[in-house]
């Protein structure tokens, strides 16, 4: 059921500035893969290419057997790839529960016009909110949640789309150590249930204890890949971080 994500020599540039150059990498089903690299190395651009927000200039991306290139973001979500954003994005003027229901997949126009929140969907949403410890907020306007709660809501809502690969863009950014521990626990638990993760993160402690393998990109190319320890020992990685 779970699939590998394969990115093959994807390139993307914006008005002469190269963000990704011949970038190739693979995310194995069932792994918690980290994607690290200095600022501006192309991590988020890669996310945006995989999730259909950018159309790569060249290259191919596959999820299992399915070619992702050219699909719209909403189609890609329905293939089982959900994502969060670097700057947390939730629907601030909708309730927490409504935020959870938006990603529920509709099949055809008929289901589109059925009740907004069906019983079993509500149960699933509440189960997830419970899991993340924010169920008591279900009827609050999402915009009134604290920063950490919003991050958890974004994660919970992404899970409502029933993804098999979850792509998180700096999930630990801005969180305090206690919250980061909780987040680590959630990710481990979900991973144990078979969820694949691809995580962009700057918090090295978080990456080193949670992720394997770690993929390092620099100037739009993959420069290293391996266990956290191996990557940390790799001189090319050090150069990339210190060099410029």
């Amino acid at each position: 059921m779970t699939k590998d994500l394969a990115v093959h020599s994807v390139a993307k540039s914006f008005g002469g500035v190269t963000a990704l150059a011949e970038c190739s990498l693979e995310v194995r089903a069932g792994s918690i893969t980290a994607l690290i690299g200095p600022n501006g190395s192309g991590k988020t651009t890669l996310f945006n290419c995989v999730t259909g927000f950018y159309r790569p200039d060249q290259g191919e991306m596959r999820f299992g057997e399915t070619v992702l290139t050219g699909l719209r973001p909403n189609q890609i979500v329905h293939l089982g790839i959900a994502r969060t954003f670097q700057i947390t994005r939730i629907f601030k003027n909708m309730t927490v529960l409504e935020n959870m229901i938006v990603p529920v997949r509709q099949l055809g126009l008929r289901t589109l016009f059925t009740a907004g929140i069906k019983g079993h969907e509500r149960e699933r949403a509440e189960g997830l909110l419970e899991f993340f410890g924010i169920a008591f907020l279900r009827d609050e306007m999402a915009g009134r949640l604290s920063f950490g709660q919003q991050k958890l809501l974004e994660l919970a809502a992404a899970l409502m789309a029933e993804p098999t690969l979850l792509m998180l863009d700096e999930p630990a950014g801005g969180l305090n150590p206690v919250m980061i521990d909780r987040l680590t626990g959630y990710i481990r638990e979900l991973n144990a249930d078979g969820m694949t993760f691809l995580i962009i993160e700057h918090n090295m402690g978080f990456v080193m204890q949670l992720c394997e393998p770690v993929i390092v990109i620099h100037r739009g190319r993959v420069i290293a890949r391996g266990t956290p320890a191996a990557v940390r020992a790799n001189p090319a990685v050090l150069d990339a971080y210190l060099g410029d």
């Binding site: 914006f14 008005g15 945006n48 927000f53 950018y54 954003f85």
Partner: peptide, 8 residues
């Protein structure tokens, strides 16, 4: 016009 970079 260049292709408008969709504001995500």
């Amino acid at each position: 016009g260049t292709v408008e970079r969709q504001s995500l």
